[in-house]
């Protein structure tokens, strides 16, 4: 993932971007809970002008997969 993406997600989670990696999940990042997850999705949708489907927003392996879905939408 790139720096812009990481800093947006980190901003929504209110943590330092250095703590985020492709294999990050809600288990490895305690601040990432059901509440902040939608802040992440909302922030990304706003910043990139895209919309995730319900499945994309709820069924993903890790942060890297969210990033890939986003990049596919942008290309």
């Amino acid at each position: 993932m790139d720096a812009k993406f990481a800093s947006l997600v980190a901003g929504a989670l209110k943590i330092d971007p250095s703590r985020l990696h492709n294999d990050s999940t809600a288990q490895t990042v305690p601040e990432w809970d059901s509440l902040t997850h939608w802040a992440v999705i909302g922030m990304l949708e706003e910043a990139y002008g895209v919309e995730f489907t319900m499945d994309e927003a709820t069924e993903f392996k890790n942060l890297g997969e969210i990033y890939e879905t986003l990049m596919k939408k942008l290309s």
Partner: peptide
Amino acid sequence: SRKMYYITKSLTSF
């Protein structure tokens, strides 16, 4: 945000 509503029961988008 409909999708957010189905999952979180919140009716106001982010």
